[in-house]
Deep mutational scan, measured.
Amino acid sequence: HMTFVALYDYVASGETDLSFKKGERLQIVNNTEGDWALAHSLTTGRTGYIPSNYVAPSD
């Protein structure tokens, strides 16, 4: 899985969403939902949907 870094803070709007903080590292599990991606946080160990425009690929 590619690793991504959060560009902004995001507060989950539902139970299936994943909250994260700017700078948090995430792995995209499934990116077939258009503007949303299923992601796993390497920081918190949690998995949920995130807005895909809130993250960018990290080196």
Score class of each variant (00 low, 15 high):
residue 1 H to V: 13
residue 1 H to E: 11
residue 3 T to W: 13
residue 3 T to M: 11
residue 4 F to H: 07
residue 4 F to N: 02
residue 4 F to E: 00
residue 5 V to W: 05
residue 5 V to Y: 08
residue 5 V to C: 06
residue 6 A to W: 00
residue 7 L to R: 05
residue 7 L to H: 05
residue 9 D to T: 06
residue 9 D to I: 03
residue 10 Y to P: 00
residue 10 Y to G: 00
residue 11 V to G: 04
residue 12 A to Y: 02
residue 12 A to G: 13
residue 12 A to F: 03
residue 13 S to Y: 10
residue 14 G to V: 09
residue 14 G to T: 10
residue 15 E to T: 11
residue 15 E to S: 11
residue 16 T to N: 14
residue 18 L to P: 06
residue 18 L to V: 07
residue 19 S to Q: 05
residue 19 S to L: 07
residue 19 S to D: 06
residue 19 S to C: 05
residue 21 K to A: 09
residue 21 K to G: 06
residue 21 K to W: 05
residue 22 K to H: 04
residue 22 K to A: 11
residue 22 K to L: 04
residue 23 G to V: 00
residue 23 G to T: 01
residue 23 G to E: 02
residue 23 G to M: 01
residue 23 G to W: 04
residue 24 E to P: 00
residue 24 E to N: 01
residue 24 E to R: 00
residue 25 R to E: 10
residue 25 R to Y: 15
residue 26 L to P: 01
residue 27 Q to G: 03
residue 27 Q to V: 15
residue 27 Q to M: 13
residue 28 I to S: 01
residue 28 I to T: 03
residue 29 V to L: 15
residue 29 V to F: 13
residue 29 V to M: 14
residue 30 N to H: 12
residue 30 N to W: 13
residue 30 N to R: 11
residue 31 N to H: 13
residue 31 N to S: 12
residue 32 T to K: 10
residue 33 E to Q: 13
residue 34 G to I: 05
residue 34 G to A: 07
residue 34 G to W: 06
residue 35 D to R: 10
residue 35 D to Y: 13
residue 36 W to F: 08
residue 36 W to M: 08
residue 36 W to P: 02
residue 36 W to K: 07
residue 37 A to F: 15
residue 37 A to L: 15
residue 37 A to R: 09
residue 38 L to A: 02
residue 38 L to G: 00
residue 38 L to I: 06
residue 39 A to G: 04
residue 39 A to Q: 01
residue 40 H to Y: 14
residue 40 H to Q: 10
residue 41 S to T: 00
residue 42 L to S: 04
residue 42 L to T: 06
residue 42 L to H: 05
residue 42 L to D: 04
residue 43 T to K: 08
residue 43 T to F: 06
residue 43 T to L: 09
residue 44 T to C: 03
residue 45 G to T: 02
residue 46 R to C: 10
residue 46 R to I: 07
residue 46 R to S: 07
residue 47 T to S: 09
residue 47 T to D: 06
residue 47 T to F: 10
residue 47 T to E: 08
residue 48 G to P: 02
residue 49 Y to V: 07
residue 49 Y to F: 11
residue 49 Y to Q: 05
residue 50 I to H: 01
residue 51 P to M: 05
residue 51 P to K: 05
residue 51 P to E: 01
residue 51 P to W: 04
residue 52 S to N: 09
residue 52 S to R: 15
residue 52 S to F: 15
residue 52 S to D: 04
residue 52 S to V: 15
residue 54 Y to P: 03
residue 55 V to Y: 10
residue 55 V to F: 11
residue 55 V to G: 05
residue 57 P to N: 10
residue 57 P to V: 11
residue 57 P to C: 11
residue 57 P to D: 08
residue 58 S to C: 13
residue 58 S to L: 15
